[in-house]
Simulated scan of single mutants.
Amino acid sequence: MRIALITPGGLGPTAGGGGIPVITRLAEMLAEDHCVTAFSLSRVEQPPELNIWHPDTQSVTRSSVLQALRALINEGRRTPFDVIHGFWSFPAGALAVVAAKLTGARSVVTLQGAETAAVPEIGYGDLLNRYHTMRSRLTCRAANAVVLLSHLQERAFHNAGFRARQTEVIPWGVPDSVFRYAPSVLSEPLQFVHVANLTEVKNQARMLRVFGQIAARRPAELTIVGPDHMQGRLQAITRELGLTDRVRFTGYLPQPAVAEAYRKAHFLLHTAYWESQGVAAIEAAMSGAVPCGTPTGCMADRDDACVTSDDDDELIEAILDVADDQTAYRAMLDTGRATAAAQDSTWNAATYVALYSRLLAAA
């Protein structure tokens, strides 16, 4: 099968931690058995061992999108693509749809982030912008298949009036070779970890307040992993809350070090406003930490393996209840691990191949 993958960027690691490991891993796994060309709409700093087209520009521009379209058409005319798959509805998803129509390929669009979100508190989400909503709807309607990352996102997709010829829920999986299961013994101080880019949509200020209330009642420590895009505001909040001796910021870490941080923790604490999936919860469950936080993304889908609430007081009490109950804690670990292992990165690639094959058979 000849497959084109289109992404705004994120293929391979970057110095600042800007890579998107799940997309890079999918491309590499597909390339083991299929002919894959990846098209990045911005420059790839450290290309993985893939056939990659990318422009010289560091960010996505109108010029880089048009260059990618020309490259896709030229490649497709030399050796036709069977499937063209874009990640995010715009511009990569729209480009996948246009290129597929021009070359006779099947088109797939995976909605990765803000397309079905509306968070007015911080002005986040395409649904807050009529133009962004319209272009996502048009892209999804024209694609042969639209992939969503959680059932929560699927409900948001339909509630927002999106339509598609075919929708599939295919959550990202992670490899157990990296996120090896080795849970820590549940004991005090309780160990919490948070893994994410430090951005407003992750609502880490709320996370720090929740952790502060837990730490006022139990010995507890929090490790925050991820590049800082908030200019030190979270560190300032940590000082204001008097938590500097309980909270550690590591900045960006490579995946093996992230996996080790999960294994040292008892709980992942994640209070995002919105997640299409929230891969950190899958990584934590695979490694041996119980995800806790707001019911968004996959954490809303897996309440038997996560501690969730929209109410801070309820969330805190629920976390402490699990921390006091070794049996309940172990049951959540086992359930989370089983689900994550059943839908790991190998399953993820195989599920995409099955989708591509069905689309080709129906052509």
Rank of each mutant, 00 (worst) to 15 (best):
F211R: 06
V210Y: 11
P21M: 12
G123D: 13
S276I: 09
S42Q: 04
A280F: 08
P256I: 14
E188V: 06
S357V: 03
V98H: 05
C35P: 01
A340S: 12
P227V: 05
A114N: 09
E32F: 03
C292I: 03
E221A: 05
R70K: 10
V193L: 10
G104N: 05
G297R: 00
V22M: 04
A328S: 14
L41F: 08
F211I: 10
H151D: 15
Y329N: 14
I73W: 07
Y124I: 03
R25D: 15
V83E: 14
L208S: 13
W274I: 09
V108R: 04
I214E: 12
F211A: 10
A350F: 00
S357E: 15
E168Y: 06
P91Q: 14
S107C: 10
H132Y: 07
C306F: 12
V290H: 09
C35H: 13
A96N: 10
P48H: 07
L359A: 10
M207V: 07
D311F: 10
W53K: 06
A342E: 09
T133F: 00
L208Q: 09
T271E: 02
S287L: 01
R180F: 04
L186H: 12
R358Y: 01
I170T: 04
S276M: 07
I282Q: 08
P189G: 14
H85T: 05
P55K: 14
S40K: 06
V108N: 13
L320N: 13
P254A: 13
P171Q: 12
S64R: 05
E200I: 09
A96E: 10
F90G: 04
T37G: 02
G336Q: 12
E188C: 10
K264L: 03
T139P: 06
A38K: 03
E32V: 11
E45N: 05
H194R: 07
K264W: 00
A331S: 15
